[in-house]
Amino acid sequence: MRVRAIIKRIVQQFLRDKRSIALMMVAPLLVMTLLWLVLDLEQYDPAIAVTDVPVQMQDLLEEQDATVEEMSSAEAEEALQDKTVDAHLIWDQDQVKLTLEGSDPTASSAVQQVLNQASKQMNPNTLNMEVNFLHGSTDLNLFDNIGPVLIGFFVFFFVFIIGGVSFLRERTQGTLERILATPLRRWEIVIGYLSGFGIFIILQSIIIATFSIYVLDIYMEGAFWSVLVITFLLAIAALSLATLLSAFAKNEFQMFQFIPVVIVPQVFFSGIFHIESVGWLEAIGKIMPLTYGADALKEIMIRGQELSAVLVDVWVLIGFSLAFILLNILALKQHRKL
């Protein structure tokens, strides 16, 4: 069968190209690990300068892991300027005054949280709340939260680059035209190409998902194979989009020019940032495959949903791929009418 011949050829070619294999299989792991190191850090412990603060309060602050330093107002002001402390707390009879350094929101909110906790314990009569989590837990940090989006993004990104460039090379080195001078049908070429790469895509999806979930220990409530299904669908969408766009690039450099236009914006709309409040922004997100892939991955990994609960995402991703594949077959008409 002719499609099988194409698949076999792509596998042979790809196996000889060690660099691309590394880029597709290892690079995402490397980037995920770096992000994990950065985002999975323990929460920030603020340093607070105190003036005339009662010892009891100071102890409570230290219990919250804050570094407490007693100093005079003048010293504290200097320390704030030098950024050696994040805040200055003054206890002036019943007047409590807090000055925040303020340039780093993470530090500022850490200070406020520490103070909140401490004052709650100073005065236990304030509203005492028991907090429960429907999904996730207190341990759910930033990496766990955006991890599913990152998995989706890196699958999309690396498949897009490798798939797009290799199809582009078929165009520039003339082999695409050459096989159009054979009885191959246009759909056979597209399907053969996607299937040949599909084998490596499945491998890549398994590697990225396994690594993130079992090595980086990203928060995961749902089923592993559901994650695989979504990453695979996302990768097929990326591959078919990349092969399609390669028809509009003259060389590798022009292919890379699609990254800021097509790939990067998808990150903004895929759930890392909250954009629900702006209607038209949300509308843009709706035409991007990553939005659906990331949504499904979040539902599965953080909220523990079944694949059946994200069927809409699944169908939309399949729809994107089918549309791109059809357009691919049509785009080959520029080489051969039939």
């Binding site: 194409i6 050829r9 042979q12 070619q13 000889r16 003339g174 001078a181």
Partner: peptide, 25 residues
């Protein structure tokens, strides 16, 4: 058809190239 510019798969061996086209035909 023999194109003016050689449209062959440079990662593959000559035999693999020929096998590919043989299967296509």
């Amino acid at each position: 058809y023999m194109a003016q510019s050689d449209a062959l798969y440079s990662e593959l061996t000559a035999k693999e190239n020929l096998q590919f086209f043989a299967s296509i035909y």
